[in-house]
Design a protein around this nucleic acid. Structure first.
Lengths: 226, 226
DNA sequence: CGTCCTGTGAACGGAAGGTGAACGCCCCTT
DNA sequence: AAGGGGCGTTCACCTTCCGTTCACAGGACG
């Protein structure tokens, strides 16, 4: 795991101890310049900036970390209660705040939640497989940025397949899972929908849906098959 | 401004006082059921859920508020320090935490920051999407400066759609969210209102409301990246 | 070579949504 | 109290779309 950036250097003992207890690697940084120089190859996992002593330096660092091409996230600010008022016009500089003196477990819980947020939190519900992206909220599909114009059943079928990559489904299974349990109709219907999906995926990506002879269909690559 | 939801009912005095000091309107809610029943037409501005006494009830409420078609945001959880460990597998239920006993100004600062993050609170009186502007205070709508003469339901429907651009809503969802939970009527009513909205938007902008066949309606263009 | 199985093209039929109009309710005016 | 206009709702009709089916051809496998 990439390390957390901690300001200042050395950081307050209680903060460093709390982060150590959470098991996160970290590296102290004393100024904006050293932050650039000592940045890991894979970047920082996040930052914990203590503004309790050198408030000006802390805010300057936050600003610098945010103005980069890839703004650093998440950024947790540690301040004294009296400094809360100073945050009013600096909302864009941080993602969460923690007050000193720290309370047991609070810093750890906040870091956990921040990681969860930036990892999976507010993002729209997506189903992704390679260049294929299905947006479940907007009922839209795209392949390498190019939007796919799918009908309802095509979308549902592709969604089901893409959420179970590599697995083979019989036509009957697909009919019951995608069309509905009570569905009673010809199994060849699946074939036709697969054909149209392949056509819309384009010759390039048509192989994403593979035929497993005498069994059914499979979505996605197999590591040792093709 | 729409009120904040506060749990439980009545909320702890120190929490209620802190929110009053921030100048936010609020309404106490005692259970998941009453939360539905007493919800304002324009929805809640957010929620502050105190889990210090009735933790189970608080988490159940959070879950209910998040599982809706339009998840309630932002949601601030208030817990005792010993409860921090209970949050580990419930990261999706809240946006921020605050510990009791409260420290001066902390709750207020957190609510401010949450509103800033979610984009509401800063200017709740306007809803903008491209050339479309809805003035929530005066109940007026304009398209590229040209005022739109909308009826009440047309305005409400357009407002709801425009505040959730890109997302698809079924007719049933629109009926329950725009018309009200207890509404019982034909789903085709939505179609007619959509038609009139499209007509008033003009041929140029009629595409702002898109039909998603077999699903419902969607407002605005796709947001793939941002 | 024969048989299964799947790909392919086309056609059918039904469902979903657009459209125009009418109904009924409420409120305002006279 | 009667009349009328605005507005939300409902209905009937029609068009378009698309899911389904069929027949046939091509390919895999024994």
């Amino acid at each position: 795991m990439e390390p957390l950036l901690l300001f200042p250097d050395p950081p307050p003992p209680e903060v460093a101890q709390a982060i150590d207890r959470g098991g996160y690697p970290w590296k102290g940084v004393g100024s904006t310049q050293t932050a650039q120089g000592s940045e890991p190859i894979d970047g920082w996992a996040g930052a914990v900036v203590c503004a309790d002593v050198d408030a000006e330096g802390a805010f300057a660092l936050c600003r610098a970390l945010r103005k980069r091409d890839v703004p650093l996230e998440p950024l947790l600010l540690v301040v004294r209660p009296e400094q809360l008022a100073d945050l009013e016009l600096r909302e864009d500089l941080f993602d969460d705040v923690c007050l000193v003196p720290l309370r047991a477990g609070e810093l750890d819980a906040r870091i956990k939640h921040l990681f969860w947020r930036t990892g999976r939190g507010t993002r729209p519900e997506l189903v992704e497989y390679g260049a294929l992206v299905l947006n479940l909220e907007t009922y839209q599909a795209a392949l390498g940025g190019r939007p796919l114009d799918l009908t309802y059943m095509e979308y549902e079928l592709l969604k089901f397949l893409a959420t179970h990559p590599g697995k083979v489904f019989t036509r009957e299974t697909l009919l019951s899972r995608v069309w509905g349990y009570e569905y009673y109709g010809g199994a060849r219907t699946v074939d036709v929908h697969v054909r149209r999906l392949r056509a819309k995926l384009g010759e390039e990506q048509a192989h994403l849906i593979q035929t497993v002879r005498s069994v059914g269909y499979r979505f996605g690559q197999t590591r040792w098959g093709d």
